[in-house]
Amino acid sequence: MADNKGVLILAEVVDGKLAAIATELLGVGRKLADDLGEELGALLVGSEVSGIAQEAIAFGADKVYVVEAPALKDYRTDSYVPVVEKVAKEVMPKILLMGQNSVGRDLAPRAAFRLETSVSTDCVELAIDADSKQLLMTKPVYGGNARAIYTTESMPQMATLRVKAGEPLERDDARKGEVVNIDAGLDESAIRTTVKDTVLEEIKGIKLEDANIVISGGRGIGGPEGFQELEELARMLKGAVGASRPPCDSGWVPDTIQVGLTGKIVSPDLYIAVAISGSSQHLAGCGGSKNIVAINRDPEANIFKEAAYGVVGDWKKIIPAFKEKAKGLLA
């Protein structure tokens, strides 16, 4: 397998621009490619994506592979897996990276099995081993209670990268790179699923993933009314409301605001966890926050181990007073 060379990342496009995860993958991929002394490629797949190639170069790619077809407009397993297979066989990368999001979660495992290689999912760190030149893939396991470092002999070495785990490079439009078109060669009769509809939750105010301040409520909030109070506080602080899993499972709040291993990953400057115990799976989604503040009536709650500041007590007494004081301070 000495013929495999370079790093290739899947560059997802959202609203006609590179997705944030794509720039993060380019940042991480650039470092890996430099450590190997090889090329960084970006794979753009979609119906009209060639216009974005220059953006991928500006964020670090040496080469951009463009695969365009009307049938590739939206992600579907059966249309994207053959494209990844075809490109991987033509380009023969040593390392193939995707994002750990709803596309990568579905695409990477299936593509890895198709390519008869392996993938390590949800990595938070990727590095080249100085001696073996193999890819070291570090991934949280057991809900975040531990981390494992994996390697593989099978090519390409595949991994998915957790959202916000990588740093994008500074955009540099002066960077030069090459654009290569690859024919999709799709057999549309082999696409076995049809997307009938896409139903999106309406987002009020600031997007959870983009907010500088996130106030999250847990099971101890007790019902939807409590979340209204957190909403008010968030509006005042120009932040967004998140939740641990139980409030979502109980239908107090939409599933789309779940923070954690299987929910959203947030890294605000301030994360206020209200009546959340601090399970490892929840911390997987907010552990990257610059400052965690915990409000919990149980002084032994695990969340206090992760927090910079904490108040022990009943949130129903703490939050109104906090809000009142903050209102005065912000006025």
Binding site: A148, T152, F304, K305, Y309, A321
Partner: peptide
């Protein structure tokens, strides 16, 4: 197909400053 080189538990810094008050509201 994958080999695990190492399994470890990330170390936690764990220096939480507990904010006190005369009562819970005051602490808030």
């Amino acid at each position: 197909r994958v080999k695990m080189l190492r399994l470890f538990q990330p170390v936690r810094e764990g220096a939480c400053e507990i904010i006190e008050g005369e009562d819970e509201a005051d602490a808030g």
